[in-house]
Structures are given as structure tokens and as C-alpha cells.
């Protein structure tokens, strides 16, 4: 039969040891469970905070980038618009120039052709006149050679010449 305490007894040392054990366990739990886990939780909270702030800064940076790009894009668009505009203007100008030139040339040619025609006409008329004069002279000499009835013949000749001149 082993030696035992009474079922209900109060022993000072035992009580003190129970207190000591509780305090030691408190220290153990504080040092080995709560401190590291709280540290890790704190670290995680800090990391989450940094991640959030990083994300925030990245987002703001991205927004700024986006704005600049949009600006650039708008700029580029206006530039291209300008370029196209100037190009079309130039093209228009050039077109007009070309058309004008062509018109002028056509006009010139037409004028030239007209003047040529007039000249040719004149020439033709002159030649014809010459021919007719020659012919008339010829005729006249022939007539004069055959019979000289000047009066009648003169009227005839004049009439012929006048007719010719009218017809020309």
C-alpha cells in the first residue's frame, strides 16, 4: 500500500508548486506559442500593407502612364490628321496646278491652232488671190490679144474680180 495524501487536504508546498507550475506554463506559452505567432501575424499584416501600398503606387503609375500614352496617341492622331490634311492640300494644289497648266496649254494650243488656221486661210486666200490675179491677167492678156473691146471686157473682168473677192 503506497503512501498517499489525504483525499481532502491542504498542503502549503503543493499549493505553491501548483502556482509555480501555472506561471511556468504561462511563460512557456507566451514565449513559444504566442510571441512567435503574434510576430508572424504582425509581419504578415505588414507585408499585406506593403503589398497593398505597392499595388496602389503601381496602379497610380499605370494610370499616369495611361494618361501620357493617351495624350501621345491624341497628339499622334492630330499630327497624322495634319499630315493628311497638308498632303491632301498639297495634292489638291498640285492637281489644280496640273489642271491649270493643262488648260493653259490646251488654250495655247487652241490659240495656236486657230492662228495657224487663220494664217493658213490668209495664205490660202493670198495664194488664191495671186492665182486669180494671174489667171485674170492671163485671161486679160488673152482677151487683149484676141480683140480689144475694152469697155465690155473691163466690166466683165471687174465683175469677175469682185465676185471672186466676195467669194473669198
Amino acid at each position: 500500500m503506497p503512501e498517499t495524501l489525504e483525499f481532502l487536504s491542504i498542503n502549503f508546498w503543493q499549493t505553491l508548486m501548483a502556482i509555480g507550475n501555472l506561471l511556468i506554463l504561462f511563460m512557456i506559452l507566451k514565449k513559444f506559442l504566442f510571441k512567435p505567432v503574434n510576430d508572424i501575424l504582425e509581419k504578415r499584416a505588414m507585408e499585406v500593407d506593403t503589398i497593398y501600398s505597392d499595388a496602389e503606387s503601381l496602379r497610380s503609375k499605370a494610370e499616369i502612364d495611361k494618361e501620357t500614352y493617351e495624350n501621345k496617341l491624341r497628339h499622334v492622331k492630330s499630327e497624322t490628321d495634319l499630315m493628311i490634311k497638308s498632303a491632301t492640300e498639297r495634292a489638291e494644289n498640285r492637281k489644280e496646278e496640273i489642271i491649270n497648266e493643262a488648260n493653259k496649254e490646251a488654250e495655247n494650243r487652241k490659240k495656236k491652232a486657230e492662228s495657224d488656221i487663220i494664217l493658213a486661210k490668209k495664205k490660202a486666200v493670198d495664194e488664191m488671190k495671186d492665182d486669180i490675179v494671174e489667171m485674170v491677167i492671163d485671161l486679160a492678156t488673152q482677151v487683149v490679144e484676141k480683140e480689144i473691146n475694152t469697155k465690155i471686157h473691163e466690166t466683165i473682168i471687174d465683175g469677175a474680180i469682185e465676185k471672186l473677192g466676195e467669194s473669198v
Partner: peptide
């Protein structure tokens, strides 16, 4: 027999180490 904790050692000054203490140390 319903008794208290078994006394395992007796130290000076009337300090006794019982099953209670040993079991509590095991638990700790």
C-alpha cells in the same frame, strides 16, 4: 480506498512530491 495523490518523494522542509506534481509536469 479513495485517497489523495500518491506520495513519490519526500524532500526536506516537509516538501512532498506527489503524483499531482509529476502528472502536472508531464502535462506541461
Amino acid at each position: 480506498d479513495i485517497t489523495g495523490a500518491e506520495i513519490l518523494f519526500r524532500l526536506p522542509l516537509g516538501i512532498v512530491i506527489t503524483e499531482t506534481q509529476v502528472n502536472m509536469w508531464i502535462v506541461m
